[in-house]
Amino acid sequence: MPKTKFPAVVSTFVVCYAFWVLLTWTFTVQELAAGAVVSLAVALFSARFFIHERAFWLFNPVKLGSALLFWLILFPVEMIKANVDVAKRCFGGCKNVNPGIVKVPVDLKSDYGQAALANAITLTPGTITMDVAEEDGQTYYYIHWIDVTKPSGQEAGDAIKGTLEKGLRRVWE
C-alpha cells in the first residue's frame, strides 16, 4: 500500500472542501468548520488512492487554463458534432451503421491523461473505448466505432481522437 504524502492530502482536502461548500451553499461559521473537519478526515484516509502523480498540477494557472479550454470549448464542440451525426443515424431508420472495433495508438504518457482521453472518447456518441493494451512501450486503445471509414491504426486514430488528444496533451504534458 502506498504511503500518504502531504501534498496529496492538501489537494484532496481542497477538492473535498470545494464539494462541501458547493453542496451546502450556506456560509455560516458552523457549516464551514464542520466541512473542514470532515474534509480533512476524508483527505487523510483517501489521499493515497486519489492522487498518484504530481499533486499540484491543477494549481498551475497555465494547466488550469488549458484544462478549462479543453472541457468548456474543444470537447463540447466535438461532442455536439458527434451527437448530431448519431441522432441523424437514429432518425434515419438505424440502418446505415457500419460498426467495428479498431485498434488505435495513443501517445499520451500520463495515467490521468490516458484516463481522461478514454473517457472523452466514450462520451462522444459513436465511439466507446473498450480496452487499453500496452505493447512494446506503445499504448493502444480498442475502440468500438459505429461507422468504420478508415483502416485501423494511425488514420482511424486521427479521425476519432485527433482534436481531443491535441487538447489533452497541452493539459498534461
Binding site: 461532442m79 455536439i80 451527437n83 448519431v86 441522432a87 443515424r89 437514429c90 432518425f91 431508420g93 438505424c94 440502418k95 451503421v97 460498426p99 466514450t122 462520451l123 462522444t124 456518441p125 459513436g126 465511439t127 466507446i128 468500438h144 459505429i146
Partner: peptide
C-alpha cells in the same frame, strides 16, 4: 429532449448490442 428522443429510438431499433450502447450515449450527453 430531441436528442434524448433520438437516443431512445436508437436504443430500441439499432441492430446489435454495441450500436445500442452508442445510441444511449446520445441521451446522457447532449
Amino acid at each position: 429532449l430531441i436528442f434524448a428522443l433520438a437516443g431512445t429510438k436508437g436504443v430500441l431499433k439499432m441492430p446489435d448490442t454495441f450500436c445500442r450502447m452508442q445510441a444511449s450515449t446520445c441521451i446522457s450527453t447532449l
